[in-house]
Design a protein around this nucleic acid. Structure first.
Length: 300
DNA sequence: AAATCGGGGAT
DNA sequence: ATCCCAGATTT
């Protein structure tokens, strides 16, 4: 859950998940749909699929016991270079370097790294590995906390930093210029229409998104294609459509502007999805985008 | 190597 | 408005 996500955002999700599924066996036995519903709103939904696949791999291929080495852990779905090293160091005292986003920044400053971190990741890892002590888990967490507090993204409190006086970034007089950021492509805008349909009793028409790609497997209301130029409105069924304004949503690599339409329709004209009472929307696997859409249409 | 994949808190 | 978060996987 914490991959690219702050503790504040994760907190309640973690508490909910561990209450619902206290053991790896519980998680492996749960239906994926249940995980996606509980994950809704947290983002990066591939993580929920990976978590489920990981639990099943641990149960089915490792007898319900996690591997106790970084190499073994990294074979599991969703557990990559950082997470495998973090678990191995913190849980099993493996003397391995743990690099998260904080360490990228701390090390880029410490070495006054003249290139973006991505171009020197393995060199940084090798350099940090030389400093890993016996208490590797404590060291990993201490270094991450140093990055989160003293060597923070916009503020470098060099006067109280224990890495002095060796930090080359501090010696440059401008440590916060590191890490050097790669030139970022500007975020394009995509536009489309979203259609919120209710039946005579007020139930809302929902459907599932495809199993791959953006918001894979999550719940949505029907939309048009999303494209650079706003297409003409093609309502899914004939009805008295009302324009309910616009929803703007920012994804990692594009900005989305959806025109919101609502109407009461005849239920038998729709087939692929299902009808949900407004009171049940809370429990659906609706990502934040579609919760915004429903709110804009006057539901939720 | 580059692109994909969410959402929100801090500034 | 911008940055970036206890990154992983696919292309």
């Amino acid at each position: 859950m914490l991959q690219q996500t702050t503790v504040a955002a994760v907190r309640n999700y973690f508490l909910r998940f561990t209450a619902l599924w206290p053991t790896v066996h519980d998680l492996a036995a749960a239906p994926l749909d249940a995980l996606l519903r509980e994950w809704a709103g947290l983002g990066y939904y591939a993580r929920a699929r990976n978590l489920h696949a990981c639990a099943q791999a641990v149960v089915e291929q490792h007898g319900g016991v996690f591997p106790n080495t970084s190499a073994g852990l990294q074979t599991l779905p969703g557990i990559g270079a950082y997470t495998s090293a973090a678990i191995a160091a913190i849980c099993f005292d493996e003397e391995i370097a743990v690099l998260d986003g904080n360490l990228d920044r701390v090390l880029a400053r410490y070495y006054a790294l003249p290139v973006p971190v991505r171009e020197a990741k393995e060199e940084l890892r090798a350099a940090l590995q030389l400093s890993v002590p016996k208490r590797s888990g404590d060291f990993a967490q201490a270094m991450m906390d140093l990055g989160a507090t003293i060597c923070a993204p916009r503020t470098a409190s060099c006067l109280i930093c224990p890495l002095q006086p060796d930090c080359l970034g501090t010696r440059t007089g401008n440590p916060t210029m590191f890490p050097i950021k790669p030139v970022k492509a500007e975020r394009p805008t995509r536009r489309g229409h979203a259609f919120v349909m209710t039946d005579a009793s007020g139930d809302v028409y929902l459907q599932s998104r495809p199993g791959k790609g953006l918001l894979a497997g999550m719940t949505e209301v029907p939309t048009s294609e999303w494209s650079a130029e706003p297409g003409a409105v093609m309502h899914p069924v004939a009805a008295e459509w009302r324009h309910r304004g616009q929803v703007v949503h920012i994804f990692t690599h594009f900005r989305l502007e959806l025109e919101i339409w609502s109407a009461e329709v005849m239920p038998d004209e729709l087939e692929n999805g299902w009808w949900a009472p407004a009171s049940a929307l809370k429990g659906e696997a609706l990502p934040t985008l579609f919760r915004k859409v429903l709110a804009q249409a006057g539901l939720e």
